[in-house]
């Protein structure tokens, strides 16, 4: 599949600060691609390089094969952008703003009028067509910037935090709209702080941290890298439980608290049947079973922790280690390894 976005060694520096530090990325045509990262990771800078609002310091960036600087007109014509910060013309009613934007992209006046009405209806603010942007509510403003991104019928729709600050109902409506667009073949590049949003919508996500891509994978692949908790409630408090960890290297910890047994394991859904079988074979009666899946958010937080945060956690684990080490010689090392993972 060809790439909607192809980035090689993309760099952007502001003085000594490296906002983008050698980004390599391919976004397949037709995909729903998420760009995740903590504040200051470089997500908006990355997007702004594509649309021409930030000039790169080095590397190459192409949109549908067009270089964003050398072939800027072809590249920009294919992009619809709904930015995080509102940047809307406040002199004109919103329908006219849309007509102007369509005009800048070469759409004739008559067609621009039709398209403006169409996209305003699509995002549900047609009855506000003669209102200026400043007089719209927060949710309507979000809808409007999506409408403006759609008026040019883009092949690549870039949504920078499209649901920031909107209520749950609107968020679901926006999700539905952009999913429909993606089903129709539009490539979507989404940045979001709502991990659930990426989990639900994206085929693939890139995690950006300190101006670098630290991972590109599907949300499912990322979640499989975390650990799940298999929580088993037993009828009676057992005196001993089978040694799950010895027989399955996916099991990382076992904890017994009264009648509640918690098995922490990678691929928890696959490990759970074994746990149940072994408990049953050992004569334990199970009254309840629950698998608590790791969330993308937990994986994301782990991947984007700073070295300082890791060091702090290691030192805190090390402080706890001596008393454990007396009982269990490997516990301190295990904690350090966990922190490294």
């Amino acid at each position: 599949m060809s790439s909607a976005i192809r980035i090689r060694d993309l760099r952007k520096s502001y003085g000594d600060v490296q906002a983008l530090d050698g980004v390599d990325l391919d976004v397949p045509e037709g995909s729903f691609f998420g760009l995740l990262g903590p504040n200051g990771a470089g997500k908006t800078t990355f997007i702004n390089v594509l649309v021409g609002l930030v000039r790169k310091s080095g590397g190459t960036a192409e949109v549908f094969g067009y270089d964003v600087e050398d072939d800027y007109r072809e590249a920009r014509d294919r992009i619809g952008l709904a930015p995080q910060e509102f940047n809307v013309d406040r002199f004109f009613p919103i329908r006219e703003v849309l007509q102007h934007k369509a005009g800048y992209h070469g759409v004739s006046e008559s067609e621009a009028r039709e398209r403006a009405d169409e996209v305003l209806k699509r995002v549900g603010i047609y009855d506000k067509r003669d209102t200026r942007f400043d007089w719209l509510s927060g949710g309507m403003k979000r809808r409007f910037v999506l409408a403006r991104a759609l008026i040019t019928d883009p092949d690549l729709l870039i949504l920078d935090e499209p649901t920031a600050g909107v209520d749950v109902q609107l968020r679901h409506e926006l999700w539905e709209t952009i999913t429909e667009l993606n089903d129709g073949g539009t490539t979507i590049l989404l940045t979001t702080h709502y991990i659930e949003e990426a989990e639900r919508l994206c085929d693939e996500v890139a995690i950006l941290d300190s101006g670098r891509v630290v991972e590109v994978a599907s949300p499912e692949e990322l979640m499989d890298r975390g650990t799940d908790d298999i929580v088993v409630s037993l009828r009676d408090e057992p005196t001993a439980v089978p040694d799950f960890a010895a027989e399955d290297d996916r099991v990382e910890a076992v904890e017994l608290d009264g009648t509640k047994l918690v098995v922490t394991a990678r691929e928890g859904g696959l490990v759970a049947p074994d746990v149940v079988r072994k408990l049953d074979a050992a004569g334990h009666e199970i009254v309840d079973l629950e698998i608590s899946r790791t969330s993308l958010e937990e994986v994301f937080v782990e991947m984007t922790r700073t070295d300082e945060e890791r060091a702090t956690e290691r030192s805190s684990d090390a402080d706890d280690a001596p008393s454990d080490a007396t009982d269990d010689g490997g516990a301190g090392d295990a904690a350090a390894m966990e922190a490294e993972r």
Binding site: G52, L53, D77, E85, N87, R90
Partner: peptide, 11 residues
């Protein structure tokens, strides 16, 4: 007010 970006991001 950054609305010049409507022009700058156009072809």
């Amino acid at each position: 007010n950054r609305y010049i970006e409507e022009v700058l991001t156009s072809p």
